[in-house]
Amino acid sequence: MSNSGEECISSLNTPVKHTAKKSKSKWSDSQDQPSTKQLQNTIISAVIEKINERADKTDQAVHYNTIQIDGLKKSLDFCHQEVVDLKNQHVALKNKCDLLQKKVNEMEQKVNESDRYSRRHNLRLHGVSEKGDAQVKSQVRDICRAVLPAEEAEMVVAAVDVAHRIGRPKEGGQDQPLRPVIIRFISRMARDVLWKGSKANNYLKNNRLHFKEDLTAADRATRSRLWPMVEAARKKGDKAYFVGDRAYVNAFPRILQGAELRREERKRGKETRMHK
């Protein structure tokens, strides 16, 4: 009985032992598989590693960009200083150019005044025929005698220093305009006597001759600019005329002197450049 009882007990215990082995096997499998916490830790570690890796790359990029920005800043600072220096040089050169331009204008004015003063001894005669072998100086003397009274004519003729044509002979014969003759007198008084006597002279009109002042290039340009005002005044019936680079109307103060006209033109030119 006892043996059978032990066998019964052992037989009863046998399934229990098999169950215990089976549960041990399950526990062993569970040990091989990571738990949820372990998976979370693994994922977190991987993410942290990636973040650290990205952070390292970002730090390197930031460091590189910082170096580049510092280089660009130095370049910009250098360029800025260059621009400031160039601006200062530009201002200095502009002031120097303005000063030189002022001196050039003053020199041009002095040269023009000197040239104008020298030309006050001259007159230009237009319409003298170029036919024949007659000397120009002889023709001029004959014209002076025909224009002026005897006493004045001899004084003027004696004062004629030089008389010659201006420019080279032109080909084409009679179709070409006659070259003017420039006459230089020894005294300005003789020149003024002939200039005054030539006004409204019938001999000159009949022979299509006329005297003109010997003006400088600057004075001719000034007269060209003033001519529209003189012409308009004459059409209105006013007495308008030139004296040098000045224009007068009814013997009153000048319309505009040449030097003032040039200043006005320069002023308008500066205003135009400023508007642009």
Rank of each mutant, 00 (worst) to 15 (best):
Q81L: 10
L204D: 05
L148C: 05
V243N: 12
A221S: 09
V62S: 12
G167W: 07
V162K: 11
V193C: 13
K74A: 12
H164R: 04
L215C: 08
L204N: 07
G172L: 00
L99Y: 04
D245M: 04
Q38D: 14
M107C: 14
Q101T: 09
G172D: 01
K37G: 08
L209G: 01
L39C: 12
R234G: 01
A251E: 12
A221W: 04
D115N: 15
S114Y: 08
H275F: 03
H18F: 07
H18Q: 11
D98S: 10
P34L: 06
L148N: 01
V136P: 02
V47P: 03
V230P: 00
Q257Y: 07
G172T: 00
E271Q: 15
W195A: 15
R145V: 08
D85C: 10
K239Y: 13
V243A: 13
Y203L: 10
R119D: 05
V147P: 01
M1L: 06
K137P: 02
T222L: 02
M189I: 07
G172C: 01
P180V: 05
H126P: 03
E53A: 10
K17C: 08
Q31K: 15
T14R: 14
E154S: 12
V84L: 14
F211A: 03
A218D: 06
L256D: 07
Q40M: 12
K196L: 10
R234M: 05
A221T: 09
